[in-house]
Every structure is written in C-alpha cells, then in structure tokens.
Design a protein around this nucleic acid. Sequence first.
DNA 1: GAGTGGTCTAGACCACCAA
DNA 2: TGGTGGTCTAGACCACTCC
Lengths: 236, 236
Amino acid sequence: MAAGQRGGWQPPLHRCGVSATWQAVRAAVLDRIRARDWPPGARIPDEADLAAEFGCARATVNRALRDLAAAGLLERRRRGGTRVSALPVRRAVLSIPVIRAEVAARGMAHGYRLLHDTAGEEPGVGPVRLVRALHTADGAPFCLEDRWISAAAVPGLAAADFAAVSANEWLVGNAPFTHGEIAFTAAAADPADARDLGCAPGAPVLTVLRRTWAGALPVTALTLTHAPGHRVTATL
Amino acid sequence: MAAGQRGGWQPPLHRCGVSATWQAVRAAVLDRIRARDWPPGARIPDEADLAAEFGCARATVNRALRDLAAAGLLERRRRGGTRVSALPVRRAVLSIPVIRAEVAARGMAHGYRLLHDTAGEEPGVGPVRLVRALHTADGAPFCLEDRWISAAAVPGLAAADFAAVSANEWLVGNAPFTHGEIAFTAAAADPADARDLGCAPGAPVLTVLRRTWAGALPVTALTLTHAPGHRVTATL
DNA sequence: GAGTGGTCTAGACCACCAA
DNA sequence: TGGTGGTCTAGACCACTCC
C-alpha cells in the first residue's frame, strides 16, 4: 500500500455520504474479514458485485481491494477472483532515513567522524573505496558505518570528501540505485568495533547490512554496527 | 503500491503504445530524478502538464506519482505541488509470516514445543495468559516465543490448546488486530534462553518485539528470541 | 472459452494550503 | 483565494487463467 497513507487519518467526507470512498470500502471489507463473515481462504464477491453493493464505481472497489492485497490480507488473481488469505503474511513498512536524520529525529545532536578511507578491490566488483566512520548522538557513539563503494558505479567518487560529509549522506544525492536489500542480525562486538563504539568487546550489537545496485552494477555495500541497546522499529 | 506488481514484471502493452501506462510514467519520472534533470528539492510539473506531455490521462500520472511518493522519492502537497525529496527516506517492506511458514520457506521442517503456559496479570492490561514456546527448524532451535495474551481482548482464549497449535498461529485466525508495532534489537542470551536455544549464555541473539492492539485494547505482546546467526531480510 | 482483475480515459467535484 | 493533488464515475479494452 501507499506508505503515505499510514498514520493518523481521517476519512474524507466527499459527497457527504452519497457514495463510498475507497477507504470506506476497505474498512467495510476489513470488518467482514475480521468478523469471519468471509473466513480465511474464502472467495469474496467480485469487484462488480461489491461496487453494486456499496453503490460506487468498480474502480473504487478495485483500489480498496488492491490496498488490502498489498497489506497481505487478500490474495487476488485474474479469473481466479479474490480470496481472504489463509495465513496472512503481514507487512510492515520500514523507514530508512539518512543517519543524520535518524539521530535528529530522536532529538539528539548528530556528530560524525571519518575513521578510515582507503582504496581497495572487491571481488566481483572491481576497484572500490573503503570507508569506515563513526556517527554520534549527543556525543555518544551511535553507530559505525563500514562500507565499500564501487568506483565503476559512482562517477565522481574520487572527488568526494567523506571527512566533510558522511558517505551515507553523500551517496543519497550522488549514487542513485535501482534496488537493494537489507538484513538485520545480532553480533558480538569485535575488539575494533568495541573500541570505536565505546562498549565492551563481545557486547551484543545490532548490525544492519545493506547492499544496493544500479541495474546489474553493484553500487555499495555497508554494515552499520549500532551501539548496544539500539532498536529498529516499524509499524504493523 | 500493490505488492503483487513487484518482482519480474513486463510492461503491459495495452493499446500498442498509443499511450503510457502508469508504470511507464513512473519509470520516466524516475529517470529524470536520477538524471538530476529534476534535482533534489526541485518542484516538478503538475499532473495536468505531465499528462499532456506523456499523452495520457491525469489519473495515470497521479497513480505513478503516488507510487513514487509512497516509495519516499517524491513529496506531494495540495496546492504546494510535487517535489523531489531532498533527503529521501527509503522504505523497505518487511514480510512477517507465521513462524511455521517462515521455517518452511527456508526448506526446513518446523517443529514446536510448548514450554510454559500460565495465567498472570499484566499491568495496565489485566488478566493474561503467559506462554513460552520453542520453534525448531529441522530439529534445531529456531526461536523462542515469549508472550502474554490479553484475556479481555481475545474471546475463547482459555479454550485454546497451545500445546497443539502455537499461539503465533492460533492468534492469526482468532485475534484480529487493527494495528501494532515491531522492534528489532540485539541482546545477550540469558541463561534460560541459552538453555532452551542450545547456545552459550551471553551469545548475541536477535530479538523481535511485537505488540498488537484491537482498537484501544491491547491484544498481545511477544518477544521472539532467535537462535544466534539469524537474519531478518527485506528488499529496498 | 469466458469470467475476473488490471488498467486507461475524460470529466468532474472537492479538500487543502501556499501564495 | 486560486492552484494543486485526491478522489469518484462510467465506460471501455485487455491480460490472465481457471474451467
């Protein structure tokens, strides 16, 4: 679904109740699913029927049902109709801001220090720039950013000054990507990370691995090692 | 957008190229953003102008732009127009299947054992059922499920047999919720967790905290403690 | 083959908010 | 207050896929 529609929301009262909005249709369908009026696995009426029932256009019903399908509550197939998911795979939207914005959103002052910046070679990628930096929040270590950046995929890379602007932020504006993946895992802080993060060696730290591509070309891969206690949250 | 449209996709060739599809419009706009034809922060033409340019209906442009806004690449405001995000907050969609399905998706056999099941009281919630269970994958510990379930919010709770069906799965069909939150953090395995998971005490483990509500009523809260090495992944 | 969802169109009204 | 996005409509054609 459109993430922008999440959060506090008021139903628009167009046309003063003359006809249903797509949100109203979505709510009505959701109620029937939850009331087990339409039990898991059951097929629900087709769009034309629902449109007639709700007194709206088919396009309105379509939008409502598409939204519920995107949320994992319905499964739709051409010719096969629409069914209530038997085992709904709920989906949560994870926001991934620039680290500086993430720290600022917590009401803290963001700091940044470049730790290492060298040239290297990444197998299967070619020449890369290797960067390690520390982000701080109100002066305390927030997370370590370890990454390589492909020289081939990022024109102007050599000229970037990562002492002045974090690679995290510079890349946002200078290295567009088409797709990527992200993974979360727990790890024990290794001695170097522990030193830079100011925590005990072996302390459990949340690491975020991210990798992006521009088409078939790898752009960058990074590991964010967060200070102990860090949480990543999302809304269901 | 509809999740069903992700993945390998071929542009529909309706009308043999006479007019643009919304995906084509989205791709064209994306190209201009990436080419910095429309730099970060810049205002882009309004929907009517783009519709004229692409030779399609405004609704088609609207759908394309809404999709890009949902992905965090555009910011739209009535009267204010549409702008390219200066600091795009990328969004990733996290799938949250039932644990049994998650294990099965990895091609492993799911196992389940109830460890504890008692009545209790949760401050601010009232009487709850406290459940602790272990999920296994091919016989090896996969994750610990620790949760409370509100008796007030879940009719039929007392009759549920969590030795036969995991609470995780039973709740999917029996305790609909309206909203919830999820958080990831790294922790050190405490002695009890270490024993049940078969890992060393103090080992770094990924914990997932989840909490759901039905309207204003808390439904359940759980902690999933995953075996060391576990990863949670999503696509950008 | 035929039923269902996916999408496009052209027009319309409305809500919101920046100029 | 006017311009912009948000949405609805009624109709249409098409793609997919189950029967």
